[in-house]
Design a protein around this nucleic acid. Structure first.
Lengths: 338, 338
DNA sequence: GTTAACGGTGCAACCGGTTGTACAACCGCG
DNA sequence: CGCGGTTGTACAACCGGTTGCACCGTTAAC
């Protein structure tokens, strides 16, 4: 077992070991066409020998990049991640970046303290690009990023597109998703709809509800809209509340697939059959959706692809590309709960 | 409104503007005692004038530090943060670091891809220290960190303390917490206990259960232990299941305060009174605990302090301090639900 | 046999800061 | 007036890489 290494080998040591100059060693390791195969082999062998890894600090200074991309989170993490969709989105980002040498890190900036630190490190150019997961209009950090000219991708639509000319934007069309779900209910002939959504202040929730409303109008009365958490148990509890009211309904639109799972459990316990008595539609196409009994009809949001897109745009902007806006589209996944 | 700045001012420009050399400018901005007050004033004015912020890359190379600390997360983020306690812990870390110039960033390393990238950046020394939020024995990343000699703090107890001589450890004594909760039940004379815990594979859950068992023995039979999520609705649903079984019980130990809130709701709906018929004890001392009706008796875990501790130890280790182990203690908060 | 072309390598400058050391200006003192 | 000591500043080296350019030896062409 090797002893802990306290001091990392430098390029100079590798060069010495291979019997070449630092510059040749550098070019060999970066696979420059100006170096002969024979020399490359020697240098690579030497590098492997001493376990050489180029030091990030020296490299960053020379190439002008840190190869770190900040994923900016401006709300409390627990809130963000209680929405299960985010982790899928983040996976999309890391997946895409793992092809490159870039590393995504999550930067929490919910308190003033945190925002100040973040601001400072933005000014120092500690990161090559920023992906803002939950941008809001008038954020002072966005203002800073704009002034600094740091490549930035916003995930989510800001009303009025205040930064369209400087920042890129990626979002999926939640209103369209609501549209699809509601349309499916309507075509099935459901007339008395209940909605069990996520938190009321979540922008996606607001947009989806708008989509529902545009299709259903008075078939989805205000009194039938319930805001709750995103989980199984939350759906279960909400459905209990609704059943306790003893109102008539034949369809439930859910804010997530896990909510839908809880709703179905509660309905079954109350002796109601899905989809014979009540239709249920979920949201996200989470892996749980296909495993539900009955298998859940749901709206698929291309979260992973959204992450890929955001990461790619960030990489392009680092290379100097102009800001872009791209909209991801929702898709209704037909199964048996409708 | 200023135009976006594309190229940041360098120290040389500041020095020129102030009419001094680069070295003097540097010392003036770093408040060296060798520089006269008058010169410092001039340099600072010039720096403010051109909006100078020292470039992280140059600075990092010179001082040998990036001033970034990685908070390593080896499980999926959504899983981690569905446990509400983590955000409190993270706040503790950022709070403490905000006193310094260090910035904590969260590094997700659940997939192989992610782990490889993380490893690479550890080798490059992109971070000055690592705080591992959910360490597990045999993690290859820990092995890498050990070999590289990167200052590392583990949050959680690893059985057998395999890295005690290289890494620092901070953990709160979950078994002790379980002990306190169970003891309170026992002193209250409760004999038939039910436990509604978090996920079965969560190490804290395992330790707490061990604490319960040590005190209660057969008063908490295996059949009465339910594993679920951490939320309100999860507790509600779990309690419904228990009530459906029609077993006799007079106490419920909960894995989180939110679970407890759901449990109380379900008990009330079933016509049972807390604490007259059934005693309920929560965990965490989340803000919801005091707001429950009746106010919730719970076990307080010093999460924020744990974060402070972890951050401080990391800073100390960067300065060269030896690894330490520190245990945080639990505390029973007596309220009305027992 | 001389020379141009070319592939391979090394020197030295550079990225943007920090810091050891030399030096100039000034002070008070004998 | 010359000395040693203090104070404030500048020069230059350094951190660890990358890269423009000059230079070397070889080969092919004339």
């Amino acid at each position: 077992m090797t002893q802990p290494v306290r001091t990392a080998p430098t390029l100079a040591e590798v060069a010495a070991a291979a019997g070449v100059s630092r510059s040749t060693a550098s070019r060999a390791l970066n696979d420059s066409p100006r170096i002969s195969e024979e020399t490359k082999r020697r240098v690579r062998a030497a590098a492997k020998e001493v376990n050489f890894v180029p030091n990030a600090r020296g490299r960053a200074l020379a190439v002008g990049r840190t190869e770190i991309i900040a994923v900016l989170v401006t709300e409390p993490l627990s809130e963000l991640f209680s929405d299960p969709t985010y982790s899928e989105f983040l996976s999309g980002i890391t997946e895409e970046l793992s092809e490159s040498s870039y590393l995504p890190v999550i930067l929490q900036a919910s308190s003033t303290h945190e925002r100040n630190r973040a601001r400072e490190h933005f000014e120092r150019r500690s990161f090559d690009a920023v992906i803002d997961v939950s941008p809001y209009k008038g954020s002072e950090l966005l203002e800073v990023l704009r002034e600094l000219g740091v490549p930035t991708v916003l995930c989510g639509q800001l009303e009025g597109h205040p930064y369209r000319d400087v920042f890129s934007t990626v979002y999926s069309d939640d209103e369209e998703g609501g549209h699809f779900a509601a349309l499916a209910m309507k075509e099935r002939g459901r007339k008395d709809i209940v909605a069990v959504l996520g938190p009321q202040d979540n922008p996606a929730v607001v947009d989806r509800l708008r989509g529902y409303r545009a299709v259903l109008g008075e078939d989805l009365p205000d009194a039938n809209v319930i805001y709750t958490g995103w989980n199984n148990g939350d759906g279960y509890q909400a459905m209990h509340q609704i059943l306790a009211r003893e109102i008539a309904f034949d369809g439930v639109l859910c804010g997530s697939d896990r909510i839908a799972a809880g709703v179905i459990t509660a309905l079954n316990e109350a002796g109601l059959s899905v989809p014979a008595d009540v239709s249920v539609v979920g949201f996200d196409d989470h892996e749980i959706a296909a495993r539900c009994v009955p298998a859940l009809t749901t709206v698929r949001q291309p979260l992973r692809e959204e992450g890929h897109m955001a990461a790619n745009i960030a990489l392009d902007m680092i290379k100097g590309a102009e800001p872009t806006t791209s909209v991801m589209h929702m898709q209704l996944i037909q199964r048996d709960s409708l």
